[in-house]
Each structure stands twice: as C-alpha cells, then as structure tokens.
C-alpha cells in the first residue's frame, strides 16, 4: 500500500544516485516540485526518461543531476529551445549528456511494453528516419503471421516513476483527470512510484474521464499543492504560459540560470505539508 509521506522523505527513500528516473507528464500534471527536491538532494548520474522533457528537465540537466536523457521531444513548448539541454548536448556543460532519442510513438510504446512486462513493443514507425540508426533501443522484427517487417522498441522499466495528480485518498489511491499522457503506463512500468498530489481527500468521488491508480501500485504519496507549476492541474490551476516565456530568458545564460536556481530551488523550502 502507498505510504502517505512528505516530499523530502519520499525522494530520500525512493530516488538514488544512478537510477533510471521518469518524471512524466504531457504538458499537463508535470511533477516540477518533485524534480526540484531531487535537485536539492543533489542526486547524481540519473538517467532521466520523459517523452517531452521541458523546464524541469532543463533545470535538472543544468544542475548536473543527469548523465543521460531518454526522450522524444526536448523543447520549451510554444517558445523555443531548452537552453540548458542544448548547452549540455552541444558543449558538455555542466557535464556531458548522453541521449537516447525516439519519436513520441516509439517512447509511448516503450512504456506500454514496460507496463505489460514484455521485452519490447511493436509498431509501424521510424521508417526512413535517421533515428533508428542512432539508437540501440530501436530495431526491427518480422511478423510471424504476415512476414511484414515492423519496428521494435525496447521496453522501458524505470527504477522510479514520479507523477503529479489531482487527488489521493487517505489510503493512497490516486485520481487524475484531463490530459493523462503516458502516466498510467509509466507508473505500471516502474519498480517504485512516487505521486505528488494537489490534495488528500476523504473520498475520491467520480470525475468525468478520471482514472484511479490503486494504492497497491503506488509506493508513496506526498501532498504538494501547486507541484506542477508552471504546468497545471485541471480543476486546480491553469498553465502559466508567461513563465514558459520567462524561462527562455532565465535559462539562456549559465550565470543567470545558476542564480535563479540557487534562489528559487536550492534555498527554497520544499513545498510539502
């Protein structure tokens, strides 16, 4: 059963140096403050996994948390580049960053394979793309029924998956709704699961389009209101589009970035109750 705990203890218990860690969220419900806690606890050599690494991964990469990034689209949505990600790939600052790069369809299916406890997933994908030749986790497989050659992608099974959700109950059952991305698959593929939530309620009354992740697939739940900012939690907050634009300025320069992170992350208290 899920333990109801606080963010500091949850990260200390569940995220270790060298782990493969997925902080998932497709624009919506991005677990930003959990990422900040990982930075504050000075985790190192993480393999970070995410379909759409955005600001929180830019921050983790820029603070030297990651050794490798597994991803399919690494930009600031609607704004432009992730400058810390680019600096790491192009110039090795603050440390070289290995990448394993996919398409969205490939990444999504890698999580599906992981959640299904299969070694790989099959899709029609990567045809004619240069990506297949660059990645050891993309190959081909021949259909035993039709003889057709199809793309195969290796399963993803993170050591830890971290997601943000709207609510949990006192037993640690987790409810989320709105754009759900690949979070269910990322949770079920992982060895350990940390969920931060906007609130803990007595009872999870039904919501249109909501899914419930039962407490027995979740390792720990921490109450972190606003934990997705500048992303959002449907029903609780709206996306802070202006901050995504501001991040372009903050992150462009190494010193400005470091100063901002020191003030807003390293010297900040964690947001847990």
């Amino acid at each position: 059963m899920a333990e109801i705990t606080n963010l500091r203890e949850a990260v200390a218990d569940l995220v270790h140096d060298g782990d493969v860690v997925a902080l998932e969220g497709f624009t919506h419900l991005i677990p930003t403050l959990a990422g900040h806690e990982i930075i504050r606890q000075r985790r190192r050599d993480l393999t970070l996994v995410r379909m759409t690494p955005d600001l929180v991964y830019d921050q983790m990469i820029g603070m030297g948390t990651a050794r490798k990034l597994v991803f399919s689209w690494g930009g600031n949505p609607g704004v432009g580049s992730l400058h810390r990600f680019r600096d790491a790939v192009e110039n090795g600052w603050p440390a070289p960053l290995e990448v394993d790069e996919h398409s969205h369809a490939g990444m999504a299916n890698r999580y599906v394979a992981g959640a299904s406890h299969l070694p790989f997933a099959v899709l029609r994908g990567y045809e004619g793309s240069g990506l297949a030749a660059k990645s050891e986790t993309i190959s081909t497989v021949t259909c035993p029924f039709t003889g057709e050659e199809l793309a195969a992608v290796a399963a993803l099974n993170p050591d830890v998956t971290v997601i943000h959700a709207q609510r949990a109950d006192g037993d640690g059952n987790v409810q989320l709704w709105g754009i759900l991305g690949v979070q269910k698959e990322a949770v079920l593929a992982a060895k350990r699961v940390l969920v931060t939530v906007e609130e803990i309620v007595d009872r999870l009354d039904p919501r249109p389009g909501a899914i419930v992740l039962p407490a027995w697939v979740v390792t720990a739940v921490a109450r972190v209101p606003g934990g997705a900012h500048p992303s959002y939690a449907t029903g609780y907050s709206v996306r802070d589009n202006a901050f995504y634009s501001e991040w372009d300025t903050i992150s462009r320069d190494r010193d400005t970035f470091t100063a901002w992170m020191t003030k807003h992350v390293l010297e900040a208290e964690d947001a847990t109750s």
């Binding site: 624009t27 949505p77 299916n109 599906v112 991305g181 959002y232």
Partner: peptide
C-alpha cells in the same frame, strides 16, 4: 501555446492517452 493547453482538453470531444493517440 503548447500541445496540451487546458483549452484543448476543455473543448475536446474526447481525451485519450498518448499511446492510444499514436497507436
């Protein structure tokens, strides 16, 4: 601004998971 703004979710006929949209 982004591919997943709340405005898209709020006005959609249906919201499906990312594996589902691609597969």
């Amino acid at each position: 601004l982004s591919i997943g703004d709340g405005e898209l979710a709020d006005t959609a006929d249906s919201i499906v998971s990312v594996p589902e949209i691609f597969n």
